[in-house]
């Protein structure tokens, strides 16, 4: 292989040495705490949950006597995911909290963030028949579970749900993935995952789903609703 010959002057040697030192220094910095290696490494795992005021939630739920907001929490996973958990009232004596979970996946805001992303906090597809069966069995033990054949629609499009019933109570598990960032989601938001689990007294499934049907996302950025897109 031909090698290009180059005259090595003292200047070149000095410049070369300086470049070498610079590279070494950069390498040292990058592999030490100074470059934030430890911090960046740590930010890939979820922070502990922290309580927030309901007003700080990125979602508004219609007023409900049966399912008021009991507590609101949030946590971050890396710099990409924010997860909000809204504990709702539960008028039954069944085990398990009624809740709405909102996962917001934003686009990384730096090259490093793009390169080092935490594992996705929700699976896609959100459920398979196997995982749905396992989840409903865990959430609604000893109840008769049925997966709805037909999706329902709220402000943000179609969502799927399963119902569970026993002699006195009914429950629903609804899930939705919003990924239409060309039309519905603003540029910075990659996806929003919603999951809603509620149990109530009686057998009125529609009443249980009403808060999910009527919720409004209030993320800082504009999110368009399905009806907003009707004229597009």
């Amino acid at each position: 292989m031909a090698v290009m010959e180059m005259a090595v002057t003292p200047f070149h040697r000095t410049a070369g040495r300086a470049a070498l030192w610079a590279a070494l220094a950069a390498a040292t910095l990058l592999t030490s705490g100074c470059a934030g290696w430890v911090r960046d490494n740590l930010t890939q795992s979820a922070t502990p949950w922290r309580r927030i005021q309901p007003a700080a939630l990125p979602v508004t739920l219609p007023d409900s006597r049966d399912f008021p907001i009991v507590a609101a929490r949030m946590r971050d996973t890396g710099t990409v995911y924010k997860t909000y958990n809204v504990a709702l009232g539960n008028p039954t004596s069944l085990a398990g909290e009624n809740r709405l979970t909102v996962d917001v996946q934003t686009l990384p805001d730096s090259l490093f963030g793009a390169l080092v992303q935490p594992p996705r906090v929700f699976p896609v597809p959100l459920y398979t028949m196997e995982t749905l069966t396992a989840t409903t069995r865990r959430e609604f033990p000893d109840m008769k579970v049925k997966v709805a054949d037909i999706a329902r629609r709220n402000r943000y499009g179609d969502y799927d749900y399963a119902t569970a019933q026993d002699a006195e109570n009914s429950c629903v598990l609804a899930w939705q993935l919003i990924t239409d960032h060309k039309r519905m989601l603003p540029e910075r938001i990659e996806a929003v995952r919603l999951e809603y689990r509620v149990c109530g007294v009686g057998s009125n499934i529609r009443a249980l789903l009403a808060p999910f049907d009527g919720l409004t996302l209030t993320l800082p950025e504009t999110i368009l609703e399905v009806q907003d897109l009707g004229g597009l």
Partner: peptide
């Protein structure tokens, strides 16, 4: 015991 800690706290 029913794993409803938010309501329990309240």
């Amino acid at each position: 015991e029913l794993k409803r800690p938010s309501e329990a706290e309240a």
